[in-house]
Amino acid sequence: MEEANHRPDNPYTEWEGYEVLDAAGEPLGRVERTVYDAPSGVLKYLCVGGRAVPAEGLDAEPDRRRVLLPHPAEKVRSAPPLEERPDGDFDRRVRRHYGLERPR
């Protein structure tokens, strides 16, 4: 992924600071950063504890200022650290880690 975060255009920055719960409902921390792909209009990742979490399958509850993840805590804690400028290789590694590989 090219540098496409366009932070000023990122509608998900309001999620930064939201509480994050794992698949079992246990607290993992807070959303530290959101990575938004402006050209496609897609939220790509959340950063929790310095780790990348794909946006697929998450459930945001803005009224409660929290995000529920479909992943267990250990999967998140062992994920690749979020890179400053995530690229295609980073995306593949993260997707592989979470079992979200796309068929070739």
Rank of each mutant, 00 (worst) to 15 (best):
R93Q: 08
A4V: 02
N5F: 01
R93N: 03
Y12A: 06
R64I: 00
D89M: 11
V53F: 09
S40W: 14
R93C: 01
P80D: 07
V48Q: 05
R85Q: 03
D87K: 04
A73E: 15
G41L: 10
P72A: 00
V20A: 11
A55W: 07
A79L: 09
C47H: 13
P86F: 00
S78W: 02
L82R: 02
R93W: 01
P54C: 12
R92E: 00
G49I: 12
L69F: 04
R77G: 00
A38D: 07
G50A: 01
G50I: 06
A79V: 07
F90W: 13
Y45L: 09
E84I: 06
A60Y: 01
R51W: 06
A55I: 02
R7Y: 11
R66C: 12
K44M: 11
V53Y: 12
G99H: 15
N10H: 11
D59F: 15
E61S: 08
N5C: 09
A79I: 09
S78M: 03
N10I: 06
V31K: 03
G50N: 07
S40V: 14
L28K: 04
L46C: 07
K44I: 01
Y36V: 00
Y12K: 05
G25R: 14
E32H: 13
R104T: 03
D9H: 12
R64N: 06
R93S: 01
G57I: 05
N10A: 10
R93H: 04
R33M: 10
G17K: 13
D9G: 02
R104I: 01
R95D: 10
A52C: 15
H6W: 00
E16L: 15
A60D: 13
D89F: 11
P80S: 09
A23D: 15
A60G: 12
P70W: 03
R33N: 13
Y98N: 03
E61W: 11
S40I: 14
D63M: 12
V67M: 12
P27A: 09
K75Y: 00
A55P: 12
D22C: 07
G29E: 06
D87V: 00
P103L: 00
A4M: 03
A24W: 11
G57C: 07
T34W: 15
Y98M: 08
R92Q: 04
P80C: 11
L69I: 01
E14T: 04
D63L: 13
P8I: 03
E3G: 02
